[in-house]
Design a protein around this nucleic acid. Structure first.
Length: 354
DNA sequence: ATCCGGTCAA
DNA sequence: TTGACCGGAT
């Protein structure tokens, strides 16, 4: 075993994170749920979601049999909602292709929707000790610092060098779980993106970045050019009935696909003043009701300025609007299906207003 | 306000 | 290879 793997593995066994709830189970399905939630999302955010999720659907069969909207509701607020849809697809595939037994080998895992190279390698290493290099953002950072790999994430040479180094460091099967978990623990708690805590690092003595440019471990492999952000004005109308119900429809595709949203219009920010007109046309009404405080919401490549109106209508008008808006359904404000975070905030505002 | 992070489709 | 996808941390 290399010095790096040896030190890292020993450190994980004594100092690594032990309190993460999914580390208490070896059940492949429950670990898979955790791995999917951990894609793009931090452990502290994931923990309560995971507890609820596997408490409710402990097996692939249970998840596969559940209504998608109900599952999405349990995912509400976690973000990247496509992961949830793919996880449901994966559960179905486990039932149909694997007889309900979640696989724990890399090749089989890779065939499941939403399971890519990093997730498959991480799961296989954790559950069976399969010798596969798990390479995620943390690993790229750690390895590029320790072995001083130059270049930017996404560049062919950088990615190839990271992979080559990651494979060269793999320990034997019996140490794979601790080693791979150690890589993740180190990246998350010590070799952080900013403010690396080299005083606590088990491999600081053999880290080239620490030796050659101490104090500059914050230097990351530069990401690619930042993508241009589109500024958009979003208008929504919370149509409320006398019995405290609202109209929501499924978001078609793109942003928030799979979630439910109120009647909505999207315009370039410069055309923001046209939102009321567009919404009135959409609803076929003369007035939009009371305007609520605007909210801002940031997505990967879009900045949203959200304006919202609260339109209180009588029962007959409510039913007429519902009939008018194809695909929209009625939900109690206090029992709505999965909605995007900003919509959830507005619904909370509604409850406070009474 | 900026940074961070896997998978899939185009 | 590039762009789309979300919310929280800093």
């Amino acid at each position: 075993m290399t010095a790096f793997a040896e030190r890292l593995t020993r450190w994980q066994r004594s100092e690594g994170r032990k309190a993460l709830p999914w580390l208490r189970t070896r059940d492949p399905f429950q670990r898979l749920v955790a791995e999917v939630m951990l894609q793009q999302t931090q452990t502290g955010t994931v923990a309560p979601y995971w507890e609820r999720f596997v408490g409710r659907w402990p097996t692939a069969a249970a998840l596969a049999a559940e209504d998608r909207d109900v599952v999405m509701k349990a995912w509400e607020g976690l973000g990247y909602y496509r992961r949830c849809r793919l996880l449901c697809d994966a559960a179905e595939r486990v039932v149909t292709d694997f007889g309900g037994v979640t696989p724990s080998d890399y090749a089989s895992l890779l065939t499941l929707p939403g399971i890519g190279d990093a997730t498959a390698a991480s799961l296989a290493a954790a559950i069976t000790g399969e010798r596969r290099a798990m390479i995620d953002g943390n690993v790229k950072r750690v390895l590029s610092r320790v072995f001083r790999i130059e270049g930017a994430v996404g560049e062919k040479a950088f990615e190839a060098e990271v992979r080559s180094r990651a494979e060269a460091e793999l320990p034997g099967t019996e140490d794979m779980a601790a080693y791979t978990q150690g890589l993740m623990d180190l990246g998350a708690t010590v070799c952080r993106p900013k403010a690396a805590d080299c005083g606590r690092c088990p491999v600081a003595l053999l880290c080239r970045s620490h030796a050659e440019t101490p104090g500059e471990e914050t230097a990351l492999p530069r990401p690619k050019k930042p993508l241009a952000k589109q500024k958009l004005a979003v208008g929504i109308v919370l149509v409320r009935s006398p019995s405290d119900e609202v109209l929501l429809g499924r978001a078609p595709e793109g942003v928030w696909h799979g979630l439910w949203v109120p009647p909505m219009a999207v315009l370039p920010e410069e055309a923001s003043e046209n939102l009321p007109r567009r919404l009135k046309d959409l609803l076929g009404v003369m007035a939009l009701g009371e305007e609520l405080p605007a909210m801002r919401h940031e997505l990967t490549h879009r900045s949203l300025t959200i304006r919202a109106w609260l339109l209180d209508v009588d029962a007959a008008t409510f039913d007429a609007l519902k009939a008018e808006l194809v695909g929209f359904e009625t939900f109690p404000v206090a029992g709505h299906p999965a909605v995007p975070v900003p919509v959830k905030r507005y619904l909370a505002v509604l409850r406070e207003l009474g």
